[in-house]
């Protein structure tokens, strides 16, 4: 395991932001820390990066204690902050060259600029970049370290579609070459596209963690969308299971989503001349799983 957090507690005065959380991020995996704003994600990441002291508990990153062995960790860690981190009047090309030189890993600043799609903005200053472009610079600064472990705090926050594609590709590339990626996000749909593991935070507690496939459950029903007014008893005969109308042309078949069941439903709709505008096989999204496990609406 690249990141091991055990019974971590973080306090700000009387406020307990993180309360006895434990989880692990496997080497080479993309682990997303999910939860709403104020759930304790950033505080936890900051302890892992060595920027914040834990009130209690232990954290190991690549076998190092981030607080007492911070300097050793910086040689192997990439960090993308949640906004900021660059002097407003600094130019993109200068910032990247500066951080590539500080890390001393031989990363070419120009190639990095091209990788994040900012070559055309090389002479632009940080203050003149859009929010999405600033996020891409921040990601590039994390890459300048050629990290073994990368902590990315809200990497796609405020980023446009094109930028999200770039960031997603880079995260996948990092993982493919063995870098452990830990990202904090409240954008569950986006996180689901890149992460293999998830840690669910709620009000400073971890309510679930593990491989995403193990966190998602399959609902015991199939849903499809057609038109309003279909007699459910007729479809039920064809499906061999009870069918319920949910409104807005949506129907739910009380049966597991087997290929045979899908085939029976679609055949019946076809012979009756009804359209099929959507089918939900019953697999949860990450957001569904979070809502179910964290007990939020």
């Amino acid at each position: 395991m690249s990141v091991v957090v055990e019974n971590l507690t973080v306090q700000y005065g009387d406020l307990t932001a993180v309360d006895g959380v434990s989880f692990e991020a496997p080497a080479g995996a993309v682990t997303v820390i999910l939860g709403p704003n104020g759930a304790g994600k950033t505080s936890t990441i900051e302890v892992c990066e060595g920027f914040r002291q834990a009130a209690s508990g232990s954290v190991r990153v690549l076998g190092l204690d981030p607080a007492s062995q911070h300097r050793a960790l910086t040689q192997r860690m990439g960090v993308m902050l949640q906004g900021g981190g660059v002097y407003p009047s600094a130019r993109v090309q200068d910032v990247l060259a500066h951080f590539c030189a500080l890390h001393g890993k031989g990363v070419d600043a120009k190639a990095l600029m091209e990788r994040v799609g900012l070559t055309a903005r090389a002479k632009g200053t940080w203050r003149r970049l859009s929010g999405g472009e600033q996020q891409r610079v921040s990601l590039a600064l994390a890459l300048a370290a050629q990290p073994e472990v990368a902590f990315l705090d809200e990497p796609t926050s405020g980023v446009d579609i094109e930028g999200r594609d770039v960031i997603r590709d880079i995260i996948k590339e990092l993982s493919e070459r063995g870098t452990t990626v830990v990202l904090a996000s409240h954008e569950m749909a986006e996180a689901e596209k890149v992460a293999t593991h998830a840690v669910f935070f709620k009000q400073g507690h971890v309510v679930a963690s593990g491989e995403i496939t193990s966190l998602l459950s399959i609902r015991k029903h199939l849903r499809f969308t057609s038109v309003d007014g279909i007699t459910t008893a007729d479809i039920a005969i064809a499906a061999g299971s009870p069918v319920k109308a949910l409104g807005d042309g949506k129907y739910e078949v009380a049966s597991e989503s087997t290929p045979q069941m899908v085939s029976r439903i679609t055949s019946w709709l076809s012979t009756q001349g009804y359209p099929l505008s959507g089918i939900d096989m019953g697999m949860e999204t990450l957001e569904d799983a979070y809502r179910r496990i964290a007990g939020t609406k």
Partner: peptide, 17 residues
């Protein structure tokens, strides 16, 4: 100002002492 812009925090994540 560098502190409020998080520049120092960003530098703290590099090998610079």
């Amino acid at each position: 100002f560098e502190r409020s812009y998080l520049v120092l925090k960003r530098l703290g994540a590099t090998p610079l002492t």
